[in-house]
């Protein structure tokens, strides 16, 4: 067993490289997913039939197809005619994860916006606010607090989803532990892998929890936090 830990020590630089890839894909994919989720989520509730239809088709398509097949498509099909688009594996991974989880997130965004009480919408009308002002200044800040728990779930799923990128030649953390298995044991290698994923997930979840508490505190609910700096860098 002590041999195993020695081997683990030898693998450490490679594990850290793999970890970096995993974290990059998670954070990059999540940022892209949030942008796509907000964009599609807002578009899915506009009056214009064509725009709303477009959003619905994109959401249903990326929710309804396998992430692995989406990655294969982007990686193997796009370089061929008539597309002739060559993307690096990392970019393919980011786009695939961003679109897939963005489509799920769009439903979260849409649902949260619809959950803001009707009275809030009516008050913005009574104050003659424009549609943009209403969304940016009143509705979205309230919907944000509602959507964080579900977005947290998606973020954890996205982290775990990054492991599938080994199918498009990316050497992420899972790929390294897959290698290490040969020099240690299946049990040892994969147990360490599980623990590392769990720790990252736990850290992300904790950060999202703080974000949620800050968002609800801004709405005057829940416990006020004094340690989390707000956008201006001032502790609230």
């Amino acid at each position: 067993m002590s041999d195993y830990f020695e081997t683990l020590g030898r693998y450490l630089p490679r594990i850290l490289d793999g970890l970096l890839i995993t974290v990059e894909l998670t954070i990059g994919g999540a940022l892209l997913a949030v942008v796509i989720a907000i964009g599609l989520g807002l578009l899915a509730r506009v009056e214009n039939f064509l725009l709303r239809g477009f959003a619905r088709v994109v959401i249903e398509f990326f929710r309804g197809t396998s992430l692995v097949v989406q990655l294969f498509f982007l990686f193997f099909v796009l370089p061929l005619p008539p597309f002739n688009v060559n993307l690096s594996p990392i970019v393919v991974g980011l786009i695939g994860l961003g679109l897939n989880y963005g489509a799920y997130g769009a439903e979260v965004v849409r649902g949260s916006i619809n959950s803001v009480p009707k009275g809030q919408w009516e008050a913005t009308t009574a104050l003659s606010m424009s549609n943009v002002q209403r969304m940016v200044r009143v509705i979205f800040p309230q919907a944000w607090a509602l959507m964080i728990p579900s977005l947290n779930n998606l973020l954890i799923q996205l982290l775990k989803g990054t492991a599938v990128v080994y199918t498009i030649t990316i050497v992420d953390m899972t790929a390294i532990f897959n290698d290490m298995r040969r020099d240690t044991s299946v049990f040892f290698s994969y147990t360490i892998a599980l623990l590392v994923y769990f720790v990252i997930a736990y850290v992300l979840s904790t950060l999202m929890g703080l974000l949620e508490r800050r968002a609800t505190a801004k709405l005057g609910r829940g416990i006020k936090l004094h340690v989390i700096p707000d956008a201006k860098g001032v502790a609230t």
Partner: peptide
């Protein structure tokens, strides 16, 4: 309508203040 609306204000049963 937006311009007409500016001339009218409303107070609601449930107040509807913005909590944010």
């Amino acid at each position: 309508r937006f311009e007409m609306r500016k001339r009218i204000g409303m107070v609601f049963q449930q107040f509807n203040l913005f909590p944010n």
